[in-house]
Simulated scan of single mutants.
Amino acid sequence: MAAAREVFVERGPAAPLDEIARRAGVGNATLYRHFRERQSLLHAVLLSVVGRMADQVERAAAESTDAFAALERFLHDAVDERLGPLCGLLLDKGGQFPAELSSQYARVEAAVGRLMDDARRDGRIRADVDLQDVLTAMSLLARPVPGSDHHIADVHRRLQLLIDGLRVSAPHG
């Protein structure tokens, strides 16, 4: 799954399955035995990532006394998991996720929304920032720019710039 996640992020949904098998250290037959179709592999990868992220952000929201810090940690974790670049891979022509994936993503949105509400109530996040602003910006920052080296440290630096801009103390107009 990790190999498939990385290859799909790097090369998109049409990435060669042979490359995924090679990176995973398995033969093509093993890959095809578990995933007969590309879509089923894409679905499994994204469901795994989104489910794991939903668990992490729900746990952070429940346990955190500092909602802004928990939101910041989630955003960095989501970048590490490649959540943003993967999300666009399984949208249907109407821009919708399959039902099972949609319910997992709804968990992410609900928990992030709670963190943002708590951070707003604590006076830590700008009032003019909404859930879609944050998730869209994180997703766009995490996507590889064609023709560039995509170092994760650079992505985290840019994400931190975004996070710093979410703080109430950041000038805005």
Rank of each mutant, 00 (worst) to 15 (best):
H172N: 03
F8D: 06
E37T: 15
A21K: 06
L161F: 01
R82F: 04
D66A: 05
Q160K: 11
G113R: 08
Q39L: 11
V108Q: 07
A106P: 03
I20K: 02
P98E: 01
M1C: 06
G94L: 12
H156G: 04
L89V: 03
A106G: 08
L131V: 07
S169R: 13
T30K: 14
M53C: 14
R33M: 11
V9Y: 04
M138S: 04
A70R: 03
H34S: 13
V134N: 01
L31E: 07
L86S: 03
H151V: 13
D164P: 00
D55L: 06
R52A: 14
V50D: 02
H151M: 08
A4F: 12
A142M: 01
R114S: 14
E10W: 06
V50P: 00
P13V: 13
V134T: 06
D164G: 13
R107H: 12
A110Y: 04
P144V: 11
R126Y: 00
D133C: 15
L47T: 13
G25E: 06
D55W: 00
F74K: 04
A170F: 09
R158E: 10
G88C: 02
R107K: 13
V49P: 08
R126D: 07
D164V: 02
A67D: 06
D128A: 13
L86R: 10
L31S: 07
S103C: 07
D149E: 13
F68H: 02
M1T: 09
E58S: 10
S169A: 14
D154Q: 12
F97Q: 09
V134D: 05
D55H: 11
P98C: 05
P171V: 03
M138I: 08
L83H: 09
F8Q: 12
A4C: 10
P85D: 02
D66Q: 06
R121L: 09
A29W: 07
A67H: 05
L46S: 11
L135V: 05
I20W: 09
S40Y: 03
H76V: 08
R5Y: 11
A127P: 00
G88F: 07
S64H: 05
M138R: 14
A137W: 00
L46P: 00
R11L: 15
R73Q: 13
H150R: 07
V108P: 05
V26L: 10
D18S: 15
R124D: 11
L141Y: 05
S139L: 04
D55C: 03
E81M: 13
H34R: 15
R126L: 10
M1F: 12
R158F: 07
R158M: 12
F97A: 02
Y105Q: 09
R73W: 01
